[in-house]
Simulated scan of single mutants.
Amino acid sequence: MADKHPQPRKVPVAKVVGKPVPAGLKLGLELGPVLAFFVAYIWLRDRTFMIGGTEYEAFILITAAFVPVMVICSGILWKLSGHLSRMQVVTLVLVVVFGGLTVWLNDDRFFKMKPTIIYALFAGVLGVGLLRGQSWLQYVMDGMMPLQHAGWMLLTKRLAMFFAVLAVANEVIWRTMSTDAWVNFKTFVLPLALFGFFILQSKLFERYSSAPKDET
């Protein structure tokens, strides 16, 4: 005899990763090092320092301070939440590598090209996944957003192209403009561009959401 009360269909939902962290604290730990870098640069940009017989511009020494601050803030975030996304880990590794090269070789070009490498790497990795018919963005973001497969694919395509544009923009700016212009671009334009990108995807999130809808 057929069951008159069929079980409701299960709908996939986003995976919750790590422990919740207050939004303000999380934002401070993620953006605090960048804002501190900006403030320190504005304060010291016209000064040079002699250390161990070698002359260093303020940019180099601020970079030397930025790297451990970034590591400490990421460590605190990991301690509080018990989790760092793969994208955060990759970014942190590149900050340490290129920041270290900048200080070691006393050459600010390495730190300035870091965003180019990061965004080009992300664009390339996402592009390879798309060619394989997969959304590696979903894997990188640990399934934090409840999207259908078609939504993940479309979001991945858009974000890959957006990252490619950011990589080109950073390369053009640091090679053709002043350090002041690049610092402003890195501190304000890049974060605002990323924020704006995800705001503009609201229709995509709504259309392809796989989260269960409330019944009235």
Rank of each mutant, 00 (worst) to 15 (best):
A64L: 06
F49E: 06
G28M: 04
M50S: 11
T48V: 09
A64Q: 01
P20I: 03
R86C: 02
L61I: 14
V69Y: 02
K79S: 10
I51N: 04
M50T: 06
A58P: 09
L94Q: 02
L61D: 12
S74V: 12
L35S: 03
E30H: 13
S85L: 01
V21I: 15
G75D: 13
G99M: 02
T91Q: 01
K19Y: 12
V16N: 03
Y56S: 12
A36L: 14
H83G: 01
S81W: 07
E55G: 06
F38S: 03
A23P: 00
V71H: 06
V89R: 08
F59M: 05
R86G: 14
C73T: 06
E30Y: 11
E30M: 11
R45N: 09
F38V: 03
G82Y: 05
F37C: 08
W78V: 03
A23Y: 11
E57K: 09
G75T: 15
I62G: 06
M50F: 11
L27V: 03
V39A: 15
I76E: 05
F38H: 12
A40V: 15
P68A: 13
P22T: 08
A23D: 06
W78P: 01
M70I: 13
K19N: 12
V69G: 06
V89Q: 12
L29A: 02
L27H: 10
V39Y: 07
W78C: 11
S74Y: 14
W43E: 05
A58C: 10
P33W: 05
A40Y: 02
V17K: 04
V16A: 10
R47G: 08
W78Q: 09
V17G: 01
I62P: 00
D46G: 04
V95K: 01
I76D: 04
T54P: 09
L35R: 07
F59N: 00
I60S: 02
A23N: 07
Y56G: 02
G24Y: 08
G99A: 02
T63P: 01
S85G: 10
V96P: 01
M50P: 05
V90Q: 00
R45F: 10
A65P: 09
G82K: 15
G53M: 08
F38M: 04
L61F: 04
R47N: 06
M50Q: 14
P68T: 13
G75C: 14
A65M: 07
R86W: 14
M87N: 00
V96H: 03
S85Y: 08
W78M: 09
L31C: 12
L84Y: 00
W78N: 09
G24L: 15
L35C: 02
G24N: 13
K26R: 14
V21L: 06
R86E: 05
Y41D: 00
S85P: 01
I72Y: 00
P68E: 11
V90F: 15
E57W: 01
A64I: 14
I62F: 08
V17I: 10
L92D: 02
A40H: 09
G52C: 13
V16R: 08
V69H: 00
V16C: 01
I72L: 15
V89W: 00
V67W: 09
L25Y: 05
F66M: 12
G18N: 10
L35M: 10
G18K: 08
P33M: 03
M87S: 07
L80H: 04
A64V: 14
